[in-house]
Design a protein around this nucleic acid. Structure first.
Length: 1040
RNA sequence: GCAGAAGUGGUGGAAUUGGUAGACACGUUGGACUUAAAAUCCAAUGGCCAUUAUGGCCGUGCGGGUUCAAGUCCCGCCUUCUGUACCA
């Protein structure tokens, strides 16, 4: 009757697989519920205990919903395109498909042994041509669409063409490239085919354009903004530079407002955490203000201006204009200069001859600095005057035009109107270069800093807006700008269009070929266009992406097949696109594909989407906040515009699970000694600043935690211990270390340790030890350690006598390089999957970051053993034929457990329900409960958490069917009704003792009884109570 | 700088939304069983003081406030984590 978890878990996992227990049907009388996990990238390292956390939570919820009578869709798959498999291919020549396949096998084995209730019949892999056919298909739909701002949705490009043919583009309210020029219907019809295609690209929702991109030379590819962290690549941490390239982009900016609305105003639609919504909101970065056009004063006028003090107001020759965006149009009369980004197109055009050298030098110097440098160095103020002036739109005063790297080319228009009195950066710039700082705020002191508080402002010295507040002045300025045609109200977004091409092999190929340099879509019926074979996964010698190495990579428009490159004749055979799609392409619609994953004719059938609608619960990491989760929302809205999906948002509720952190183990190592000239301070020998040499030890010395702490080393700095200070133990230890060091140095060097002219410092560094060599008491298995790090096989380990070598512990992110990874395989082997599942939940709230500590698992493991014991009478036959009536206590325990567990699951408070189970089992054990009426429903409660043991015991109780769809027990309040309450009696708010009273006892009677109690007399010590507060059913408080 | 979240025993964390702070576990200590170990079981465990049983004082990052009553509400700070940043 032993609880043999390994055997039981295998048995039920096989049972579920064989009977397809968790296969979901696309129609059912039951209500539907869709629980989704973010699908994993199958990395070569496999899973660590942190990975399944979210899967366990979603699995508990999915199983719970099945008990509650829902038809549950709980699929899983793989985001299997990506960099690591390709990097591995570059190094080894092994095809990424093979690496990926192997990794998936490992993942599947690891997932299976945890006992998830996934419907594996619906598995998708983004790298499977049958899947990416539909990624390519969505891409084509995007290409064939434009964004109509009047109807506020995506529409077919053919409608746009019709409008161009009929009326040109002047009155079309579409989201398009900024540089789109206006044309008439006649002009459109006169354009050549290629010209028309060029114009249409400026409107399409995915388009090819020369854009400034983040280029990562080390990875040989471009990166999206969300793939860059702190100025370096997210993967590998390589530097990133700005570069102009022709790239596919996604016009996500067209959806900026709708993406924002979904999280901002329409909150009931999107039950996501505030933190996540906030992140997306910041990323979209909406700012409302105005665009203002400043005319640049021509150079000849500037000369006139410089020779005479008088201003020439009759200028007519306006050649250049500068557009700026401002959130403070009300401060327009405070403008005293303008600043352009050094990269701004106009810089070379407007710079005067005298300033040319200085400007060129500055532009060059800025270009050399990496984005990261510029970001790190915020404090330094730099800039150069261009020599040019712009004209104030209202006052017509000349305004000097500067360039400065505090203005970013990639935000807004790359130019600002500088208002030093109202913006600190402009203020600092003006102070630094001695530019005037006119004050336009009434009664505000700006002698020390700018005044940026727009809500407490009255505008002054500002012509027609004097005396107005921010709101009124803004409105008026925008009106006046519109009157003179030099500006308008404008909303600006930080969100940029997303670059969609990658110069990589292991990604979705584009269904695109090129005729006369213009991209053409391959018709839907010929999809998928599968990845070609290449000999090398590196870029070609001419710098083309890896697909440039393919020999069979041309499109034959007659046969509609991929053919040999040799056949390219630009008549019927054309070159195919060499870029591939980015990682987020495949993850942007996978949740909908799960609804109908094997459909070869459609991305999903109408019936499937009508039935499943959208994801009800999505669980995954918050690191995808501004990547996947934003892109997927964008694609969903596009699919909604096409009428393909019934919801604007793909996931109703989203939870970000926290991370499980590792507990790293550190050992202190002395591996070198630094020799200095000695000097004496207060008669004590210490090292002088004069360094002689560093002596590296052949065999390092490792110091146990307490050993090193008692010696009181200052870590990593090193400390001179030559002098005889400290107590006896310390001296002995110091001597021991010195002896070991001396035994290792050459005869030439020994003088440094014996001669009084020298002092030496032992340099202590801390290195990670693999946590598998460390036990719960932080003792290091030194033999296993030296076995693992062979270079230390002759190292000395120093620790206290009669003790063992102790490591230091610290909590860090779990990672291979920190040797703190705990493999779920080991946990499942030693404690079972049910213990792993329970323990991961028991660690703490789902959303929280928390450290893993394998030792703690004995708590939940012991709980399962106790649970098992409760059911032994049903297995050993001792209860055969006997029906035991539940006692009142039994029922009370059961029903309070039902209530709490149900509430906890609904609130995703899984940690507290594990506690509740423990309490229930402890109580039922104490009650010696053998009633089936209690123990049967208890199993259903526990089954979502520990499904294997639940199935096994369910079977032991005589069931032939799986527990997975057994009805969730119904809570009955009547079992919890109490007739008395143990009232806490407090005095001035401090509880002193308790008295039991009937619950129906009146306030007055309780008060009397409390005052009559002799313990009350003791507490009051003769004082009269001023007041007695009685809260029936809760508490009594005596004030005195 | 801005935004969001969080500070509770040696540790992970509970606390019915203002009503007995520290549930449930880990760890530690003591005990039982055992030749021994493991496993299992029992007891104690926030700190300080007192002890013959009883008891007393302090305690949820810090300082104030509201209240019969504050971990929970209000005001002002401090610290940590996460995101983001010359965003005009």
């Amino acid at each position: 009757m032993k609880y043999n978890f390994n055997e039981i878990e295998k048995k039920w996992q096989d049972h579920w697989a064989k009977n397809q227990t968790f296969k979901a049907e696309n129609n059912s009388d039951k209500p539907k519920y869709y629980v989704l996990d973010m699908f994993p990238y199958p990395s070569g390292a496999g899973l660590h205990v942190g990975h399944p956390l979210g899967y366990i939570a979603s699995d508990i919820y999915a199983r719970y919903k099945r008990h509650k009578g829902f038809n549950v869709l709980h699929p899983q798959g793989y985001d299997s395109f990506g960099l690591p498999a390709e990097q591995y291919a570059i190094q080894t020549g092994q095809h990424p498909a093979i690496t990926t396949e192997e990794n998936i096998k490992t993942y599947r084995r690891q997932l299976d042994q945890i006992g998830f209730s996934f419907d594996w019949s619906r598995e998708v892999r983004t790298s499977d041509p049958k899947y990416y056919k539909w990624t390519q298909w969505v891409f084509i739909q995007l290409f064939n669409s434009w964004y109509n701002n009047d109807s506020n949705k995506a529409e077919n490009i053919s409608e746009l063409i019709k409008m161009f043919e009929a009326e040109g583009n002047a009155n079309i309210n579409a989201t398009c490239d900024d540089d789109t020029e206006t044309f008439t219907a006649e002009a459109w019809n006169a354009f050549s085919d290629v010209e028309q295609q060029e114009i249409l690209l400026k409107y399409r929702l995915t388009y090819l354009a020369e854009t400034e991109v983040n280029w990562c030379p080390a990875l040989g590819t471009v990166l999206a903004n969300d793939e860059i962290v702190n100025g370096v690549s997210e993967r590998g941490g390589h530097p990133v530079i700005r570069k102009k390239m022709t790239q596919w982009s996604m016009r996500i900016s067209a959806y900026a407002e709708r993406l924002l609305n979904g999280i901002d105003y329409n909150t009931e639609d999107l039950d996501w955490t505030d933190a996540l919504k906030e992140m997306q909101k910041n990323w979209i970065g909406k700012s409302v203000g105005a665009s203002v056009t400043f005319n640049v004063i021509s150079n000849s006028d500037v000369e006139a201006l410089e020779t005479s003090e008088e201003m020439d107001t009759s200028r007519t020759s306006v050649s250049n204009t500068i557009d700026v965006f401002t959130t403070r149009p009300d401060t327009i009369f405070g403008v005293s200069f303008m600043t352009l980004a050094p990269e701004h197109d106009l810089v070379s055009k407007i710079t005067t001859a005298e300033q040319k050298d200085a400007v060129d030098a500055y532009v060059e110097a800025t270009a050399k600095r990496s984005e990261r440098d510029r970001m790190a160095d915020v404090k330094t103020i730099s800039g150069v005057f261009t020599g040019a002036y712009a004209e104030h739109p209202f006052s017509k005063e000349p305004i000097p035009i500067w360039i400065g790297d505090y203005v970013l080319a990639s935000y807004g228009t790359g130019a600002v109107m500088a208002v030093p009195c109202g913006d600190q950066r402009d203020y600092d710039f003006a102070k630094h270069f001695d530019i005037p700082i006119p004050n336009i705020f009434e009664g505000v002191d700006i002698s020390e800093e700018a005044f940026a508080d727009k809500d407490n402002t009255i505008i002054a010295n500002s012509d027609f807006i004097n005396g107005m507040n921010y709101k009124k002045a803004t409105k008026r300025v925008i009106y006046e700008l519109e009157q003179i045609g030099q500006g308008e109200g404008k909303t600006n977004y930080r969100l940029r269009d997303a670059v969609f091409s990658r110069q990589r092999y292991w990604g979705e190929p584009f269904p695109v070929y090129y005729v006369d340099g213009m991209p053409q879509m391959i018709a839907d019926e010929h999809l998928p266009i599968t990845l070609p074979e290449v000999e090398k996964y590196l870029p070609t010698e001419t710098g083309e992406p890896p697909l440039g190495n393919a020999t069979v990579w041309a499109w034959d428009t007659e046969t509609n097949t991929v053919v040999d490159n040799d056949k390219i004749d630009h008549k019927t055979v054309f070159p195919l696109e060499l870029n591939t799609m980015p990682g987020w392409a495949g993850s942007s619609q996978y949740f909908n594909r799960y609804m109908d994953p094997h459909n070869a004719n459609e991305i999903f059938s109408q019936e499937a989407i009508d039935y499943w609608q959208q994801v009800d619960l999505y669980i995954g990491g918050s690191e995808h906040a501004t990547g996947h989760l934003l892109y997927a929302r964008f694609w969903q809205k596009f699919m909604y515009d096409l009428g393909l999906v019934p919801h604007n948002e793909f996931a109703k509720k989203l939870i970000n699970q926290g991370m499980i952190l590792g507990t790293s183990a550190f050992v202190n190592r002395i591996d070198k000694v630094i020799i200095n000239k000695a000097t004496r301070i207060d008669g004590k020998k210490v090292a002088s600043k004069e360094k002689i040499k560093t002596v590296k030890l052949k065999n390092p010395i490792f110091l146990s935690y307490y050993y090193v702490n008692e010696i009181d080393y200052s870590k990593s700095v090193g400390i001179n211990l030559d002098d005889s200070f400290g107590n006896k133990i310390i001296k002995e230890r110091t001597q021991r270390i010195t002896d070991i060091i001396k035994s290792q140095v050459s005869d030439d060097d020994i003088k440094y340790f014996e001669d009084d002219d020298f002092a030496y410092t032992r340099f202590i560094s801390t290195i990670h030890a693999d946590v598998s060599f460390v036990n719960a008491s932080n003792e290091l298995d030194t033999i296993a350690f030296t076995e693992w790090r062979k270079e230390y096989r002759n190292a000395q380990f120093l620790y206290e006598e009669d003790k063992t070598f102790i490591v230091e512990r610290d909590v860090e992110k779990m990672s291979k390089s920190k040797f703190n990874v705990v493999n779920p395989d080991d946990i499942v082997r030693d404690y079972g999957a049910d213990s792993l599942r329970l323990y991961e939940m028991f660690l703490g709230p789902l959303e929280q970051y928390k450290p893993w500590n394998t030792a703690g698992i004995t708590g939940v493991s012991g709980f399962l053993k106790k649970l098992w014991k409760l059911y032994i009478p049903f297995m050993d036959g001792s209860l055969s034929g006997v029906e035991v009536e539940p006692t009142k206590d039994n029922l009370k325990t059961l029903h309070k457990t039902i209530k709490k567990v149900e509430e906890d699951i609904e609130n995703f408070s899984f940690n507290t329900s594990v506690s509740t189970f423990m309490i229930a089992v402890n109580e039922l054990t104490a009650q010696k409960c053998t009633s089936k009426d209690i123990l049967e429903p208890l199993l259903v409660l526990i089954s979502p958490y520990a499904p294997h043991i639940a199935e096994e015991l369910w079977e032991a109780l005589g069931h032939n069917e799986s527990i997975s769809t057994a009805a969730f027990p119904i809570f009955d309040q009547s079992h919890l009704v109490e007739s008395t309450k143990e009232y806490p009696i407090s005095f001035n708010g401090k509880t002193r003792f308790t008295i039991e009273f009937p619950l129906d006892m009146s306030k007055e009677d309780i008060e009397k009884a409390v005052l009559a109690d002799e313990r009350t007399q003791t507490q009051m010590q003769g004082r009269e109570p001023k007041r007695v507060i009685v809260v029936p059913g809760r508490i009594v408080n005596v004030v005195g």
